[in-house]
Amino acid sequence: MKILNQVQEDEVIAEFLLAEINSDRFKEGILNALRDHDLNLLIKPNLNDQTENKIRRDILGQTRGYGRNTDLFENFPKEVKWYKALFKKQDLKEVMYINYSYWNELSSNTRLPLQASKNIMNQIEVYEISNQGFLDINLVLKNGKVFPRLIFVSMNENSQIVVLEGHARLTAYFIESEYIPYELEVLIGYSEKFSEWDLY
């Protein structure tokens, strides 16, 4: 892993929403929270516009609990230093899922996407949820589609790294790992207080 430069929280929020507006699971909630605002607020964010940044922050709060200490972001640290980084394939193999029942089961309690991808290819499904979505993402990855950056978190550079956003995409990469780029640009946040985040 190579850290490139620090980024602002607003960029991370924008990237998170850009990814989830394309998610079958989260798209409807985001569009409802967007209300009458222009969709370009999410698709072509202007990070220099503080009004836009506030709207995006509110949307992520409504849909995923960001800044409200609920849902995905319950006990999430208030102060996180965010960076742009490059991950190689070997680095990605060590990234873990959040500590959540579905991802635990899918990965045979390893929390590793590589193990989950093996289970998917062995047609193991958990909680009666289809694996087709992973296969669909894998297909478009093979066809060269570029997705929003994965978002990771960690306590420090010597601690475990956990996916905050991008579980399905990371899993899809490992279904046919030869399609993982030599280096993949991601966003990663650091805070010692991630030890208090239940999903870490």
Rank of each mutant, 00 (worst) to 15 (best):
Q160Y: 10
G67Y: 02
I124N: 15
A116H: 00
E183S: 12
M96G: 00
V162S: 04
T171P: 13
I151Q: 12
W197N: 04
I98T: 08
Y200V: 03
N138K: 15
E11N: 09
L4M: 11
H37E: 14
R149V: 08
G144Q: 08
Q62A: 04
K54Q: 14
A168V: 13
A14F: 10
W103K: 00
K142E: 13
N104C: 08
Y66Q: 02
S177R: 08
E178D: 15
P77G: 06
L164C: 09
E128R: 15
L141E: 06
D91N: 14
L139I: 00
G133T: 08
R57G: 10
P181E: 05
N119M: 09
I55M: 00
T110L: 03
D71Y: 07
F147H: 14
V186P: 14
S117P: 06
V140N: 13
A168P: 05
A116I: 06
S101I: 14
E105Y: 07
E176Y: 07
L135T: 06
L187N: 04
I55N: 02
E20Q: 04
S154E: 06
I124G: 08
F174R: 05
N156K: 14
E28F: 05
D38W: 08
L41W: 09
K2W: 04
Y100F: 11
K78M: 11
S117W: 03
I59Y: 08
N143I: 03
Q123W: 01
I180G: 09
I43P: 00
G166M: 02
D24Q: 01
N69E: 12
I13T: 10
Q62E: 15
D36S: 15
Q115M: 14
I43Q: 12
V126C: 10
E178G: 14
